[in-house]
């Protein structure tokens, strides 16, 4: 069997072995033919295999890994619904953005070139529904039928969305003078930021403090994601600073940009919930500290992505924030070691 999964993932040219697969090619000849459906089935089986591979590469056995992910999904969902009245909105929006991710132009261009037009849309619709299904099922379980139906219905037309079309135009950001993480990150997570702001407004409208704090924390979580992937070494090399100076610049940029993004939300929450100002400012401070540790964590593995021990260490801090007191210096020393050969 040719490695279709890698083919889709990498977006490379069609591998020779794949191109010469007569069964596959024959299946493409006639839309709706049994072979064509077999290939569509193969596509989904291979997507499942990709997930298995990723778990295996991360050192997790697929079966307990998937089981654990399912349990975690239900646990987080239950927690969310127990904490806020607007959980159905958060849930529906989350589902929406996850589906939107599947509309990425690179992978879809490749699928378009392989499958007939009708089959392509069939695959995309099925893919969207499968992805939305856990969210829909939990919304049904929580008896929020309107949201569940809405999410189901929106997942069908979203199959026609090609996200490249959405970013052909330049999305303006307030971070123009502070390249590059917040500029690129905000453009990529544009919808998610809008959703967080919507939740802030909703929290004010329904006077739900927990939802307001959640929206502030969500904004910080979004900014953490800007630092997941390392840039190419060249973009570190260009700096005329030593490792310490470089990290100082990156951290100060992160703090300035995150303040630009979160302070309007912070101010609004403080005005509406003045009795909870200490909690709100506490969340803001915690957000800053997590952001600093994320910047350091990123460069502690540079030029590679964060490895499992680093990710575990970081996750530990999310559950037990005082651990940051130990973890931040560790990341800082590691980051200096990683950056010195490039910057000196």
């Amino acid at each position: 069997m040719p490695d279709f999964a890698d083919f889709v993932e990498k977006g490379d040219e069609k591998p020779a072995s794949f191109a010469s697969d007569d069964n596959f090619a024959a299946g493409l000849l006639k839309t709706g033919s049994p072979k064509c459906y077999m290939n569509m089935k193969n596509y989904f089986v291979l997507q499942f295999r990709r997930i298995e591979r990723k778990l295996t590469e991360a050192g997790i056995h697929p079966f307990p890994g998937i089981l654990l992910a399912g349990v975690a999904f239900v646990a987080i969902s239950a927690y969310l619904f127990s904490r806020t009245a607007a959980a159905d909105w958060i849930y529906a929006l989350l589902g929406f953005f996850v589906i939107l991710k599947l509309g990425d132009a690179n992978r879809n261009d490749l699928l378009r070139s392989i499958f007939k037009r009708k089959d392509y849309y069939l695959i995309r619709v099925q893919e969207n529904i499968i992805t939305a299904l856990p969210f829909i099922l939990y919304l049904v379980y929580e008896r929020t039928y309107l949201m569940a139906t809405g999410l189901f219905l929106i997942s069908i037309p979203l199959a026609a969305i090609n996200t490249r079309q959405l970013w052909r135009f330049t999305i303006p950001t307030p971070f123009r003078k502070f390249p590059f993480e917040f500029i690129a990150g905000t453009r990529k997570a544009f919808w998610l930021i809008l959703a967080a702001c919507f939740l802030t407004l909703k929290s004010i409208q329904v006077e739900n403090f927990n939802l307001g704090v959640f929206s502030l924390a969500l904004l910080f979580f979004i900014t953490l994601s800007y630092y997941f992937k390392p840039e190419r070494a060249y973009f570190v090399w260009i700096y005329s600073a030593n490792a310490k100076g470089f990290l100082r610049k990156k951290i100060s940029t992160a703090l300035i940009c995150s303040s630009i993004l979160t302070i309007p939300v912070l101010v609004m929450l403080c005005m509406v919930f003045p009795e909870n100002i200490p909690i709100i400012t506490g969340v803001q401070m915690a957000g800053y500290i997590f952001l600093i540790s994320m910047v350091l964590a990123k460069y502690s593995a540079f030029p590679y992505e964060m490895n499992i021990p680093q990710a575990v260490l970081y996750s530990l801090c999310l559950w037990f924030p005082p651990a940051l007191l130990i973890v931040i210096p560790i990341f800082f020393v590691q980051a200096q070691k990683r950056l010195n050969p490039i910057l000196e």
Binding site: T170, R176, P179, F180, I183
Partner: peptide, 12 residues
Amino acid sequence: MSRITGWEYLKL
């Protein structure tokens, strides 16, 4: 980097 304009690249 993706989603960085020419202007922002020069600024970087």
